[in-house]
Nucleic acid binder design. Structure first.
Lengths: 205, 205
DNA sequence: CTTGCAATTAAACAAACGTTTAATCAATGG
DNA sequence: CCATTGATTAAACGTTTGTTTAATTGCAAG
């Protein structure tokens, strides 16, 4: 039955690529199916055919982003080295992942605060997996009460790493030269230094 | 001519309050004027009457949030004390401001990455004022090249402070006890410690 | 009293929305 | 070769969208 698996994958993935790009640039709510279909070069009805509803399309985008993000946390935090070394590896890998999946990141972040019950349960399930993955490393042992709860740790670090991509359109109009001067590795390094050692020693004063 | 200044202010502000609340919960694109009008208890046409277009309504929301934010940066960073003391004051004041204007913050953040040219120029103008306000304090003197450019400094810190509010709906489903245990002052303290001193000493390992 | 102006209203506008339906296409397995 | 099946299509569905229009209300100044 997988005769047209070539074209099927093409259409499905072209829809997904067009949708995530338009959602990231114009917002989920303002992007219509006709616009997506035109950008993907497919018929309007194919979106419902492959994804069911608009929420189904959004859920798939969230799944793709979160699954990759959790997987990076699992892999990098479980490796060798002490806590700060592993955290530094994780930050570097996560920033690279954010850049590679920039549009997925932006859709996920901008849809985070919204309260659609169906989507919210989806985000919460992934949030639980992320916090569980990180908790063991932040706070080993049963009677450990760190100064910062893991759920705060995760959201704060995620926001820090995402800031560059959230602010990109504004940054390139405020300080265009900075955006091209500060590469991804530089940025990951800055996040690491701030998050691990603080900003005190980075700023001359 | 200002006869109905009482009811005028009432209607205009009720529209604004309803709009920012619905935008924050359901997203700008998914919120319709009829929904706003119903929540504000006014006639549908009053929204266009007071704000012109939907973009005009959004621009007013952005203006309100950014003007207050820039004003806090100006005031707290210009006060006495060394750099870290002023920065700590700013963080505390900004977090309190974010909490008081939570819905405005969420609308602003979620609309940040979108690329509507008209709105984008608006955001860029405020971004310039914010960066200018902070630049002098981060990097005094003409030949100062800090390890982190002011525009990166601003967006990273803003994202950190906003993380609690961006993630609130997810957090209260992942670790509901943490959200009630960690008050606003506690949270501001955590942001200060991480941003200034780093997370190394906060986590036992 | 009446002139004027801002606030408010109901009604309508065309356009765009997400979704569904039924028909057609293309290719594979029996 | 025929039956089956997934992919694709055009067309239409009823809502809902943001916005406009024209008429009405109610108060204040001349």
């Amino acid at each position: 039955m997988k005769k047209n698996s070539q074209t099927e994958a093409d259409s499905r993935e072209r829809i997904l690529a067009a949708a995530v790009s338009l959602f990231a640039r114009h917002g989920y709510g303002r992007t219509g199916f006709r616009e997506i279909a035109a950008a993907a070069g497919v018929n309007l009805a194919m979106i419902n055919y492959f994804f069911g509803t608009k929420k189904g399309l959004l859920k798939e985008i969230l799944d793709i982003f979160f699954s990759g993000y959790v997987e990076i946390a699992r892999k990098e935090m479980a490796g060798g080295g002490d806590f700060t070394a592993r955290l530094e590896r994780f930050i570097r890998a996560a920033v690279a992942y954010f850049a590679a999946r920039r549009d997925y990141l932006l859709v996920t972040i901008t849809e985070l605060p919204h309260d659609d019950p169906e989507i919210l349960e989806h985000k919460a399930a992934w949030g639980r997996r992320m916090v569980e993955t990180m908790s063991g490393h932040i706070c080993p042992g049963p009677a450990c009460a760190p100064a910062m709860p893991p759920v705060v740790f995760c959201s704060m670090l995620t926001s820090m790493m995402a800031s560059r991509f959230l602010f990109t359109p504004v940054m390139e109009r405020v300080r265009p030269e900075v955006l091209s001067a500060v590469g991804l590795d530089d940025y990951a390094g800055m996040v690491s230094r701030v998050f691990l050692d603080g900003v005190k020693e980075m700023i001359g004063t």
